[in-house]
Simulated scan of single mutants.
Amino acid sequence: MHVRLTLLAAARSSSLLDVRFDDDRPLDAAGWHEVLRRVPSLSHLAAAELRYCSPSARCRETGSVLGLTPLAQPALRDCDMGRWRGRTLQEVTACEPQAVDLWLSDPRAAPHGGESLLTFIQRVGGWIDTRPVSDGGWAVGITEPSVLRAALCYVLKAPPHAYWHIDARPLTALTVTGCSGQWHLSLE
């Protein structure tokens, strides 16, 4: 079965300097403005057969502003960051520099007590592979930027450390086509 899946990174919920692990804050004013500005260029997403989103407030709000009324999917949630949830990288590095180094260098490590990077990528990939879209159908997912990065690693079968070299900015879209285990990246 051949399907198309478009993942769209949600609009922003904070400034770059205040990005927090596993953040569930709603869109900030700049995020609202940006998604409203992009509605005309993203309105085609409403034609998708199925529309999903991460359970986070900013993903639900981005989908709603775009008129998608997406269904929240737990598998599209941000990486479980355990005790680091809600803290910035700078805050965690100040308290646990060795744990941060381990987390950044070993994709199987989860020094925060949550998910490892490898487990996160596999969770996102499992969701991609099991979308119930009809043959030739199209699904859209409004996700955290981290989910888009994990999806890209999974689809391209890239090594997990490639995750750290992908920049997924707010409202960046990624479209893949194919079927379970045989995905192709479509640049638009």
Rank of each mutant, 00 (worst) to 15 (best):
T177C: 11
L27H: 09
L71I: 04
G114L: 00
P159N: 03
R123S: 00
E61W: 02
S180E: 14
L185I: 14
S43D: 11
V133Y: 12
E61I: 05
R58S: 10
L185C: 05
G31R: 00
T177E: 14
E96H: 04
I121D: 04
F120K: 00
H184W: 10
E115F: 10
A139L: 07
H44I: 07
P70L: 08
H2S: 06
L118E: 03
H112S: 14
A57K: 08
V176N: 07
A110I: 06
P40G: 00
M81P: 07
R123Y: 00
P132E: 15
S180N: 09
P145I: 13
W183D: 01
T130Y: 11
T143D: 10
D135S: 11
L36Y: 09
A72N: 11
A47Y: 01
D167K: 08
V140T: 06
Y52C: 14
R85V: 09
L152H: 07
E91Q: 14
A47K: 02
C59V: 11
L68G: 09
C153P: 03
L89K: 03
D18P: 05
P160A: 02
E188L: 07
T6S: 11
R85W: 04
L45N: 02
A139R: 01
D106I: 13
T175D: 01
P70V: 10
T119H: 00
R51C: 10
A151K: 02
A29I: 15
I142R: 05
L118N: 01
R37L: 10
V3M: 13
L117H: 02
H161M: 08
R131S: 15
Q182N: 12
E34G: 12
L102S: 14
L36A: 13
E34V: 15
S14V: 08
W127E: 05
P111D: 13
F21M: 07
L45D: 00
G137Y: 05
A57E: 11
A57D: 09
Q98I: 14
C179H: 08
A10K: 06
H184T: 12
I128W: 12
D22V: 03
D23N: 08
V35Q: 05
T69F: 14
C79S: 09
T62W: 03
